[in-house]
Amino acid sequence: MSRVKRIAKELEECRQDTQSGVTLKLNNENDLTHLTGYFKGPPGTPYENGLFQISIDIPNDYPFKPPQMKFATKIYHPNISSVTGAICLNILKDKWTPVLTLKSTLISLQLLLQSPEPNDPQDAEVAKHFLSNKQGFEETAAYWTKIYATTKDNESVNVELKDSQLYGIDDEIVNQFENMGFPRDKTIEVLRRMGIKSFKGVNNKSDVENKILEELLKECQ
């Protein structure tokens, strides 16, 4: 069983290496096929200060087939599904080679956080946000990091969870429609579906408002 030996060796190497900032842990001491990886969000990005958990499943054919990785921590990133945590990265699919390791793959993921590829997205909604309003995207990503990826001993954990902010939607819009009598969750759902985050830079504001109204009326029928 070359797989067992290889994973054991990778674990050991990762344990000794304190430089890379990547940690690997077995979920269960007796099972070498389910691991969890941890790394810090790269500084200078909206993910800074966050600690991200990656769930790792090792296939039978490892290292000849890539490990299956996904984000266990919720993250707001164009190449990672905001719902499931699935990752779109070539080395986890066809560009995998047996020379790559769990550690090097985790480092690649860290790099992916630094340089997103919105043109090859996993999460279309996030990618659209990124391309249309980079600042808004970064604010939302930072917000997600704060809420989901901050460790318990960090004091900022007690941030109030705000649904509009979660999707990077300007709270004013939500309030505007809520005051008209529409339920808050429906309003957010419609706004998400229509890809509207804020009215900043929108010229035909009243047109857009009408469209939102139309959608909301349909939704609340």
Partner: peptide, 8 residues
């Protein structure tokens, strides 16, 4: 020889 892939 120790092989990098199978770690044998």
């Amino acid at each position: 020889f120790s092989c990098f892939i199978c770690c044998e």
